[in-house]
């Protein structure tokens, strides 16, 4: 029988341990496929954070460094500065990159660090059990905002890609989603472009992916996808937010 689908060589044979309906698995597969297609698996160093995204170190087949919470980009920059010819990417949740590690994201972009950051935004702290994140939406119920997120006291959702896109050192910034086959295909294109940007040494690249957390959202996987489409996509600016001329001509 003809084999129509196989696990990417960018992934190990360790089974994903994510909750049912979580979209981390899709995103990791897309990255793995990109690493394989660009033939850079053996030249890549991934940086895993703390949080659900931290499991990435076991699932990708490239070398990995585990960072402290929020520090993935600083760690990645250290590795990249030491080995400029290698490909370095960080795989981070929204808590990691938009809460405790915001300063590193901003300055990585400001300095045009030649690394790629993948941000998985599910608007909540997943690993610790569903606490409010800076990316949580107005009125959103979480275990630390049980009456709904009150933006007047806890802040408005941070749109990290938009923020980063304003900085000259960030040359490619995209905000995509993995809620439908069409969007998944677009997401993969964005991820591939971000890695190509790094291969060409053009500057900092960031791809943010809207993701679901059915467990902590207390929804079924299909309701989660619907909720993402109806609630998150209107709040977060979607699409390619920054493509410099050099990136355009890649």
């Amino acid at each position: 029988m003809e084999k129509v689908f196989a696990r990417s060589k960018g992934l190990t044979d360790v089974p994903f341990s994510f909750c049912p309906g979580c979209t981390h698995g899709i995103i990791m597969r897309l990255i793995a496929e990109v690493l394989e297609e660009l033939d850079i698996i053996e030249d890549t160093i991934g940086i895993s954070p703390v949080g659900c995204a931290g499991f990435s170190q076991d699932f990708f087949s490239c070398d990995f460094i585990g960072a402290a919470h929020g520090r993935a980009q600083a760690v990645g920059i250290g590795a990249k500065r030491a080995l400029p010819d290698k490909i370095v990417f960080t795989y981070q949740g929204d808590g990691d990159i938009a809460a405790i590690g915001t300063q590193h994201a901003i300055h990585a972009a400001a300095r045009g660090e030649k690394i790629t950051s993948i941000m998985v935004n599910n608007a909540i702290f997943g690993m610790t059990g569903g606490q409010m994140a800076p990316t949580s939406l107005e009125g959103m119920k979480t275990v630390t905002s049980p009456y709904g997120k009150d933006v007047s006291t806890t802040g408005y959702p941070i749109d990290m890609p938009t923020l980063v896109a304003n900085l000259p050192g960030a040359v490619y910034v995209a905000s995509v989603s993995v809620d439908s086959p069409k969007n998944i295909a677009q997401a993969k294109k964005a991820i591939k472009k971000a890695f190509k940007v790094q291969q060409a040494g053009l500057g900092f690249s960031l791809v943010s992916l809207l993701s679901t957390c059915p467990t902590n959202w207390n929804m079924s996987p299909s309701d989660s996808l619907k909720w993402l489409r109806e609630n998150m996509m209107p709040v977060y600016k979607m699409g390619e937010l920054k493509v410099t001329e050099e990136v355009e001509s890649l």
Partner: peptide, 26 residues
Amino acid sequence: GTVLQAEDEIGAINMCYGASCTGARV
């Protein structure tokens, strides 16, 4: 050599962490 003035002390030590992982003296 490479000198990088980091965004803060936390960034600096974590950059050391990343560089050291590659076997470089830092």
